[in-house]
């Protein structure tokens, strides 16, 4: 084996540098591409936005107890069934913020903390709550699922 000449060693060094440069360029492109590829993969749900659907579990509870409390974009919402009508209201009592429940026998919503009562329009029937409950919209889809959406949306 003969000694590599200085010019040879320079070309090989240049060659080596080019390879590493190419490799690091590839590495960088990967680090940029990875998040973008993950980002572009569609979400498992049908659409990213839109109203909340009741899960099978929640629908079952609604069927059984005539009401269920579900989270809708960070708020608790009470969904209830009264005489085959669906209703939905913000479940937070307007007095001290306790969670209200539904009394199916009396067709009223009731807050156990200070005995506040609300009718099927969310209006205060008795007790200390100063304001009516926030209304939501509950609808039964043709396929039987129940959809909750905010009223002004």
């Amino acid at each position: 084996m003969e000694e590599p000449s200085p010019s040879d060693s320079r070309t090989s060094r240049r060659h080596f540098l080019d390879i590493i440069l190419g490799a690091s360029l590839l590495g960088w492109i990967t680090s940029v591409a990875y998040p973008i590829v993950r980002y572009l993969k569609p979400l498992p749900q049908t659409g990213p936005t839109g109203p909340t659907h009741l899960t099978r579990d929640e629908s079952g509870k609604l069927e059984q107890n005539k009401f269920v409390i579900v989270p809708v974009s960070g708020q608790r919402v009470i969904v209830l069934q009264s005489q085959d009508q669906l209703y939905a209201f913000g479940a937070k009592c307007t007095h001290e913020g306790c969670t209200i429940t539904y009394l199916p026998g009396q067709s009223v919503m009731w807050c156990p903390c200070h005995d506040g009562r609300f009718d099927m329009n969310g209006r205060v029937l008795s007790g200390p709550p100063p304001q009516p409950l926030t209304k939501y919209i509950a609808k039964k889809q043709p396929d039987g699922t129940i959809v909750i959406s905010e009223q002004h949306a």
Binding site: P35, Y39, K41, L43, P48, T49, G50
Partner: peptide
């Protein structure tokens, strides 16, 4: 809502 989903749910 779409921005909310984008920042919380979309990878």
């Amino acid at each position: 809502e779409s921005i909310r989903i984008l920042t919380t749910k979309v990878p």
